[in-house]
Write a protein that binds this DNA or RNA. Structure first.
Lengths: 187, 187
DNA sequence: CATCCTCAGTTCGGTCATTGAACCTTGCTG
DNA sequence: CAGCAAGGTTCAATGACCGAACTGAGGATG
């Protein structure tokens, strides 16, 4: 095997899908968040989605796959499962620091996709304090700082369907801060 | 183009692996670079790998998968296939602007993996002009600028195997600029 | 008390992607 | 002409993913 002896990574590698020969932190990261759907789950979590059912309807992901991803993300310390009511007992999945730290990656990936493969703006991300649209790294050009995730406001752009069917997409149409839990209209 | 009309999804989509219901540039990006191995191919291309065989031995990827990924990346305008000698005719795959634009994403992903899942430094990335190590977004703290990809120098860190078997890994042990083509020792 | 509903999963058969090994082709090189 | 290297393709087996159906806990309804 090619792993550093002294390196973290004590035997128990859970996933069978590692990139065996790679000594690289990118490969390491992809072993964890590189599976299908995983980064979209994290994205939704940043957008404030927290409940199994909300992920389900918003992503259109197979139930079994969602369960597996939530499991893995929790095991890797990216999400934390926590009880938010006792009767009936219900849990929600909330991003940890480690999960929130994926924001720059998602931001960069989204900016790339937008610049190269989209012709209508779908969403804007702005610095809450000053309203300036974020640069490609999540920085505020005006303030000259990296904007903390909680100070990012997300707004719909012209390319976004103004009347989506699922309630989560509908809730995400209002301007809102990242990480702020989505509240469904109980219409 | 796969943008939704309200009917949802007229036929043309090339890939079978799209995230159908998502209106999101992150999802769009992941449809293209989200498959297994794809981002590692791009990473290698940034490191200067250009030839089929070099990708093959460095990644340990199945031949068929590599061929498929190179094909897709070329079709999406991320790599460009170009003839570098006529006899025998040989082609190499070089990053386009669009491919180079993935550097911030890979940088952010690598920084995340390093910070959260690695305990030994594998590589350092520095601003060639001043030697300062890059920040998480590929910026130089000293110069206060985003460092262009071609001005990034990559150096081995203490966690890297000092004597790897495959010649590509060996070539990547020397400090080198990103995008600079790897030259094999013909030992 | 019986029924229905919601949430959060699990199970299952079918399909699609990935894998490793073997094979093929082109054009040198000895 | 034999052998070899680069750059693939083909194939059978395995694993991941898919949608639909089912389960189970715990109210809410009548």
């Amino acid at each position: 095997m090619n792993l550093r002896s002294e390196s973290g990574y004590s035997g128990g590698m859970a996933l069978g899908k590692d990139y065996a020969t790679q000594e690289c932190s990118i490969a390491r990261a992809l072993e964890i968040v590189g599976e299908r759907w995983t980064l979209l789950v994290v994205r939704d979590a940043l957008y404030g989605v927290r409940r199994y059912n909300d992920f389900l309807v918003h992503l259109g992901i197979p139930r079994a796959v969602l369960a597996a991803r939530l499991q893995t993300l929790t095991a890797e310390g990216i999400l934390e499962k926590r009880r938010y009511q006792e009767s009936p007992p219900r849990d929600e999945y909330v991003l940890t620091e480690r999960g929130i730290a994926l924001w720059p990656t998602l931001r960069a990936l989204g900016a790339w996709g937008r610049d190269h493969f989209t012709d209508v703006r779908l969403r804007y991300f702005r610095h809450a304090a000053c309203g300036t649209e974020l640069g490609p790294y999540g920085e505020c050009a005006l303030c000259g700082t990296i904007v903390p995730v909680g100070d990012v406001v997300m707004e719909p752009g012209p390319g976004l369907d103004p009347d989506p069917v699922d309630p989560v997409s509908r809730a995400l149409l209002k301007p809102r801060r990242l990480l702020e839990p989505v509240e469904m209209d109980q219409a």
